[in-house]
Design a binder for these strands. Sequence first.
DNA 1: TACTATACGGAACGCGCGCTCCGGTTAGCC
DNA 2: GGCTAACCGGAGCGCGCGTTCCGTATAGTA
Lengths: 192, 192
Amino acid sequence: MSARSGTVEPVKPLRADARRNRAKVLQVAYEVFAAEGLGVPIDEIARRAGVGAGTVYRHFPTKEALYRAIVVDRVEHLVAQARELAASREPGAAFYAFFDLMTTEGATDKGLADALAGEGIDIADVMPELERAFKEALRDLLERAQAAGTVRADVTVADVKTLMVGCQAMQRYGGDAPPARVLDVVREGLRP
Amino acid sequence: MSARSGTVEPVKPLRADARRNRAKVLQVAYEVFAAEGLGVPIDEIARRAGVGAGTVYRHFPTKEALYRAIVVDRVEHLVAQARELAASREPGAAFYAFFDLMTTEGATDKGLADALAGEGIDIADVMPELERAFKEALRDLLERAQAAGTVRADVTVADVKTLMVGCQAMQRYGGDAPPARVLDVVREGLRP
DNA sequence: TACTATACGGAACGCGCGCTCCGGTTAGCC
DNA sequence: GGCTAACCGGAGCGCGCGTTCCGTATAGTA
């Protein structure tokens, strides 16, 4: 949970209890959104954090501001992991490792999946530079894998992103189908 | 829009205006749900149908009853089309034709896609025999295609259903990725 | 300890939406 | 045309949820 402030205005430091509460809210909100999606009421998050609703709104002026803080952080992690994989593994392995990471993440973190699918927040609208960084990192992974011949040459970054969102949906709505085989089908389809 | 009543109680025929209004509501609701999903308010549907909200609720006691009527009808169509394809084409072509049909349908009809994904209605809960008929028809297509060697042998009916739901999600949330290639990847993955 | 800026909690407000209710209207029938 | 049962429209109720407001409590400071 990075603590950057959007602008550079000198913000006087929070009081100790305020800092505690803010952190608690952020953590609880992260867990709850991940488990149940972005639809959970603020009052509920406040309750589980042992805090009044007013306190939540003092730290995050809007519900959207709250989950934006969380989702942005998650996507930043994903971008970092993509870069790490690109640097530390051979092209094919790196690409497919990231592909798996994204789909597992989406299955685990319903809030993130909602955001990726544009439900309740559209990252591309709200944090265009983050969206760009994500696509950049993915492009790197994809192009190396294609150059190495482990991914068919005609798919684009947008295709892969779409496929990953679809795979997340499969895991969430799939019901009784075992994820392993379903994902394997898509991976197989990506091979040249 | 089939007009069966659930039980066999003799229902006295509707007055002419009532029948007109019912049909109008059904048609408008179908279009609106298809275009914008199951989240559209009843009042809005009533307004577009040129009818009061009370009239909608007289014919369909619940919002769920309304879209159930529509969704069930759509799924029945799909089952019928599956059977038709199974009877009129060779195994591989039939299976992939149905696969395409389902994904296009899901991209076109947001209401249907919502229902398939279990948002707002769970067909398996609400119309178990229809769900069974759907799976039966799909099983037939799948097993023939597998016997003919055009689909890999280890995927199950549940896998295929999940894949189709995922493909619908891809088309809906995919954004800028051209559907053709994305779907092609999944189809390619289904081949032996 | 006393004082004040800061933060807290939760009651309350506004709004959207599913659903109900009832005074008025109309189709069907003599 | 007149009568009645069936039907209609839309105002209104209840509820959930995002957001605001304000009287109270407390951290920080001297």
